[in-house]
Nucleic acid binder design. Sequence first.
DNA 1: CATGAATGAGCTTTCATTCAT
DNA 2: CATGAATGAAAGCTCATTCAT
Lengths: 237, 237, 237, 237
Amino acid sequence: MSSNTTMRTVAGRAGARRRPGVREKAAQATRESLLRAAIKVFARHGLHGGSVEKIARAARSYDRMIYYYFGSKEGLFVAVLEEIYRRFNEAEARLDLDPGRPVEALRAVVHFALDYYRRNPEFVTLLNSENLHRGKHIGKSLRAREYSSSAIGVIDELLRSGVARGEFRPDVTARDLYLLIAAAGYFYQSNRFTLSAFLGENLEAPEAVASWERFVQDAVLRTVLVAPPPVDGAAAT
Amino acid sequence: MSSNTTMRTVAGRAGARRRPGVREKAAQATRESLLRAAIKVFARHGLHGGSVEKIARAARSYDRMIYYYFGSKEGLFVAVLEEIYRRFNEAEARLDLDPGRPVEALRAVVHFALDYYRRNPEFVTLLNSENLHRGKHIGKSLRAREYSSSAIGVIDELLRSGVARGEFRPDVTARDLYLLIAAAGYFYQSNRFTLSAFLGENLEAPEAVASWERFVQDAVLRTVLVAPPPVDGAAAT
Amino acid sequence: MSSNTTMRTVAGRAGARRRPGVREKAAQATRESLLRAAIKVFARHGLHGGSVEKIARAARSYDRMIYYYFGSKEGLFVAVLEEIYRRFNEAEARLDLDPGRPVEALRAVVHFALDYYRRNPEFVTLLNSENLHRGKHIGKSLRAREYSSSAIGVIDELLRSGVARGEFRPDVTARDLYLLIAAAGYFYQSNRFTLSAFLGENLEAPEAVASWERFVQDAVLRTVLVAPPPVDGAAAT
Amino acid sequence: MSSNTTMRTVAGRAGARRRPGVREKAAQATRESLLRAAIKVFARHGLHGGSVEKIARAARSYDRMIYYYFGSKEGLFVAVLEEIYRRFNEAEARLDLDPGRPVEALRAVVHFALDYYRRNPEFVTLLNSENLHRGKHIGKSLRAREYSSSAIGVIDELLRSGVARGEFRPDVTARDLYLLIAAAGYFYQSNRFTLSAFLGENLEAPEAVASWERFVQDAVLRTVLVAPPPVDGAAAT
DNA sequence: CATGAATGAGCTTTCATTCAT
DNA sequence: CATGAATGAAAGCTCATTCAT
C-alpha cells in the first residue's frame, strides 16, 4: 500500500449527516460487490492466487475500481479481513445464552462455533491466508482488533455461573476453553480434505458432523464439570 | 502434470547392484536440495506464492531441474507433501509409549503432537495450502495415503488398556480423541498470528505454550477418565 | 484460448454514436499494427516460430497487448487468418469480368489467381501453417468461413456463358476448375524454393512467371473448350 | 550446425568392406528409428514445433543420440529431407510405363502423383516446412539435389511418343506438364483442411478423391491431345 | 464515477544443446 | 555406445498497477 494513493470510503467525508444520493448508492453497491467478490475469490484461491482481475470480473466491475475504493490489492484484503471479523462478531453477538443453565449454554456455544465454521468456510480459509502471511494485514487494521471476541466474555460468565453453583471447576479459564472449542471446530473444517484422505472417511457427511459435535460438547463439559456424568448413556445426553 | 513429461527418479535402473557413482550422488543431492528448498519456500509463501525460481535459487540449482526431477511445479508440491507426511510418520513411529501406564502415555501423546506442530511449522502451513486446494494433490499421491497415522492405532491401544483397568470410559473412540488432540495442537500453531492479535497476547511465549499443553492434557484426560481427579491441584498433575 | 480471458474489441460499446476519441484511435492503431506485424511474423516463421515478443516488437508494442486484444497467441492467429481471407475476398470482389467474353474472362481469372499468390506470399505460407495444424483455427472462426470464395460463383457464371454459346463443354464444374487454377498458382508460389533446387532454375524470374501463366491459361482453356485452338501458334495466344 | 561437432555415419569408415557387427546393427537401428520418428514428428509439428525430446521419445531413445548421429536438430532435418526425397525417387523409379500407349501412360502418371501425395502426407508437410525456411536445408544437402525427379524425363518420353504418333501437340513441355500434375496433387493434399472449411465438403472422402483424379487426368490429356475426345461421355472414360 | 488502454516485471514451462560418465 | 545430469535462453502467459479520458 503506497502511501500516496488516495483511498475513498464511499461516503466522502466520514460522518457526514447528508442522506446518500443516487450516485453514492451506486458507488456503495460497487464497493460492496467488489468486497463480496473478493471474499469469495481470496477464500478460494488465497491472497496470491486471487488476482484483482478475477475479483473485478466476479463483481462485474473493473480492476481499476479496486484501486479506487481500496487503494491496492492488499488494502482490499485488509477490508476483507475486517468484514469477515465483523460478520463473525455480529453472529456471536446474536448468541442468546441463559447463564442460569451453564451446561446447556456451553453446549450451545460449542454448537455455534462448529456450525459457524462449517457454514462459513471462507472465514476459515481467509484466516489461514492471513496466518500464512504472519498476521501482517490484521496488524495494519485498527478496526479488526476492535472485534476481540465477545465470546470469551460470554464463556467467562458461564464458567463463573457454573462455579457459583458448585457444578464447574474453578481452575479452568475462559480463554483456554474458548481456544479448545475454536480449535475443535476450526481444525475439523479447515483440514477436512487432508483428514478425509488420511482417515479414509468423509468428514462432511451429516452424521460425521453431528457425531463430532456431540463428542466436542462432551469433552468440553467433562473438562469443566466437577462431577461428570457416569458412563452409562452419558456420552449422548 | 502433463502425462508426456519425462520424470526421473534419481537412481536410474532400480535395484542395480552397482554402487552409486559420483554423478549419481550429486544427482541425489540436487534432487534432495530442491525438495528441501521447496518445503521451505512453499511453507512460507504457499503454493502460488512460492515460485519455482525462488525454490531453484534457494537450492542453488536451476528451474529446469525442477522439471527434470519432478515434472512440474505441482509434481514438486506432491513430492513435498509426501515428504512431510513421511517425516511426520517417522516421528510418530519413534514415540515409545508404555500401554501399562495409559494416563502417562496419553500425556505423552499430547506432548508429542503439540511439540511436533510447534517445531515443524512448515508441516502446518503446507497442509493448509493443500486444504486450500481441496486436497487435490494428496489425492494424486498413492504414497501419501499410505501414511495413515499410526497414532490412532496407538491411542486405540492406550484407550483399551485404560478401559481394561477400569480407569477409562469405554465410550470414547480413538479417532475422536486423536482429532481433538490434533486440533488443539494444530490450531494453536496455525492460527497463532491472528489469535495473538485477537487475544492481545503472544502465544509463542514459552509459558503460554507450556500452559496450553497442560490444559490440553487435562482436558483430554478428563474426557476419558471415569473418575477425574478432584479439583485441588488436579490441573497441574 | 481459455474461456476466462477477457478479450476486447476496440470500440467498447458497439454502435455508440460518440465519435472516437484520441485514445480510441490510438487503440485502433495498436490493434491494427499488432495484427499487421503478426501477419508478417507468422508468415515468415510459422505459428510456432513466430513468437509473441517478435510480433510485439515489430509492432512497437508489448506482448501484454496481444493478450489484451486477442486473448492468446492462438486468438491472434485466428484474427490473422480472418484478415488474410478478408483481404483475398476483397481482391476477388474487385475482379471485373465480362461474362460475354468467357475465354478472355477465364484468362483474367487465371491471371488474378497466380498474380495474387505471387504478390501476397504471406497468404500462402499462412494457409500452409493453418493446414499444418489441420485447420483447427479456421474451424474456430465463424467469420473466416463466411469468406467462401466468390470466385467459384464467378467461374460458374463464365462456364455457363461459354456453354450457352456452344464454346465450352458442359461437363466441367466450376469447383474443379477453380481448384485447378488455385493449385497451379499456389503450388508454384509455395514450393518455389524446393522446386528451384529440384529443377535447377529460378522460378521467380519474370520470364518463368509469365511463361507459367500462359501455360496455365492454355491448359485451363483447353480443358473447357469444345474446340481447342489448333497447334500452330496456339500456345502463345 | 556448428562445424566442430562430430557427426557419425553409422558404418564408421564409409565404404569399409567389413561386415556390420552386432553393435553396428544396433546403432543402425537406433539411427533409423530416430530418423523415422523425426519424419513423423517434423511432419506433424513442423521444424520448430517438433522438439528433439519429442523425437527422441517417439524413437524410444535419447536426445543425446540425435546429436551423436546427426550433429544437430538441423542436421536431422536435412537427413529427413534427404530420406523423403529418396523415398519419392524410389517410388517414381518403380513406375513402369508403356511409351507405346502415351495416353494411358499419362493417366498413370497422374494417378501415381496424386496417390503418392495422398498416401504420404508427411512428404507434403515436410516440403512445406522446408519452403517456409526458403529451402535453406535442401541447399545444404548435396545428396538431395541428386534426386532430381526422373519423372520429368519420363513425361518427356511420353510426350515425344505422343507427338510422333500425331496424337499430342508438340508445343507442351514436360516440365510444365509435370508442374501441373504435381500442383494438382500437392495442393489438394496440402490444403485439404482449409479447402474443406472453405468449400464445405470433405475432400478426403473416397469419391471426392476419385472424382478429382479423373478431372485432373482429363485436364492433362486435353492439354496435350491434338484432338480431345468429344463431349459425350468423354469426361469419364 | 467509470472504463479502456498501457506497462513492465514476473510467472511456469519448454527449448536446443553440452557435460560427464 | 548409451545415458543421466546440467544449463541458460527464451517461450507463452498473468500479474498488480498506472495513465488518460
